[in-house]
Amino acid sequence: MFADLAQLTISGLATGAIYALAAMGFTLLWQTSSTINFAQGEFVMVPAFIMLGFLGIGMPLIFAFALTLAASALIFGVGFKRAVVDPMIRHGVLPLAIAAMALSLALQQGVKLVFGAEARSVPDILPDGVTRIVGVAVSYRDVGVLVISFVLILGLQLFLARTLTGRAMQASAQNPDGARVLGINVDRMILYTFLANAALASIAALLVTPIYLAKFDLGGPLGLKAFCAAIIGGFNQMHGALAGGLLIGVIENLTGAYFAPQYKDAAALVLFVIVILFKPEGLFGRREERRV
């Protein structure tokens, strides 16, 4: 009984850490450029297929991933900012969000057009196998995912808090006018957050697709959970996204095992609705005043 629970919790944490990666990117974009990226799930799905493309021409996994990272930084970092966000942002938050929805539709259908509707398997960078720790079966894969995600998230936090560029990025997010006065190139800082988001999403793709397979409609549920994680944790707090992601991963797993497997996907949503109804600023977020 305890062993089952612990096992489910650990694998839930691993899935949740992947949600957290996508959720962090989501939060970053919102903070720096008021972008509600409805295509966040597709930002994970498309790199998986780009990587499959590189693997298909016989490239080793590590090179394929490096090239994928570069390609998605170009497409979903620079390209997305310049072609969609920059022209749309002056029209307001909502039109931009709707444009992102249109983009998600185009990406989904585009991948379906090129690669077809079948799910494809993706090679795993993490080792197979299980070890037993005090009677609890722990897979190497889950541990690997957790370690990679935590290192990335902590690294990003440290970068934002400790380095000059990181602080300039935070300043640009919190007070763009003030940052400009201080001589910070706000536009460039915003671009950096887009690049960071693209990188986080690509790494999430690398971690998630070996288990869940690469499919054109993978992005929908993933993006939804990333958003739920960001809201549950608190949209204006980076560590909130991490906590929200982990929480969703665990609750989802427990719901699937003990309550109703067919409603596993609903767990995140129910939690999300409860949070926005009773604590809209999120579990760890600061309250924002409703402005006139």
Binding site: L224, L269, V273, I276, L277, P280
Partner: peptide, 22 residues
């Protein structure tokens, strides 16, 4: 509509989206 009394815009978009999934 009740969530809409508490939250706006993108929060609402996702709340309704979540409802659709449910």
């Amino acid at each position: 509509g009740f969530p809409a009394l508490r939250v706006q815009h993108h929060y609402l978009a996702f709340a309704t989206l979540g409802f659709n999934v449910l």
